[in-house]
């Protein structure tokens, strides 16, 4: 069960991050957070979206690093699937949330 959980962890981190960023995006657009400047030209909305995206990337990266560093005593798919899951989660986080860096927010 722990192995299954580890395999699901990477995509689950993406799912949580995707949900959080989408929720923050909707809430920020509705509440006018784009008009609140927090650090010079940076709006509260952008700050929150960037923070959530980077935090998700960090969590996914941390998981992957831990899995890669773990002693490879398990054979084949037992070792590979959690790592593949972590790569899937990290890649999906980087790609699907890239619009945080590229698109206008609202």
């Amino acid at each position: 069960m722990r192995w299954l959980g580890l395999s699901l962890a990477g995509p689950a981190i993406w799912a949580a991050g995707f949900t959080l960023v989408y929720a923050l995006h909707g809430a920020g657009c509705a509440q006018g957070w784009t008009d609140i400047a927090v650090a010079g030209a940076v709006s509260l909305h952008a700050l929150l979206l960037w923070s959530a995206w980077l935090a998700t990337l960090a969590a996914g990266g941390l998981l992957l690093a831990r899995l890669l560093a773990a002693a490879p005593k398990a054979p084949g798919l037992v070792r590979a699937l959690p790592r593949a899951g972590a790569w899937i989660g990290l890649g999906a986080t980087a790609f699907t949330l890239l619009p945080v860096a590229l698109a206008t927010s609202c």
Partner: peptide
């Protein structure tokens, strides 16, 4: 997992902000 992150592409024409469109397009 990814199939749960696509649903808004059925709603691209309802007037959703660009960034959200881009999330679901990606």
């Amino acid at each position: 997992f990814l199939s749960f992150g696509l649903w808004v592409h059925h709603m691209f024409t309802v007037g959703i902000p660009h960034m959200a469109l881009a999330f679901f397009s990606a």
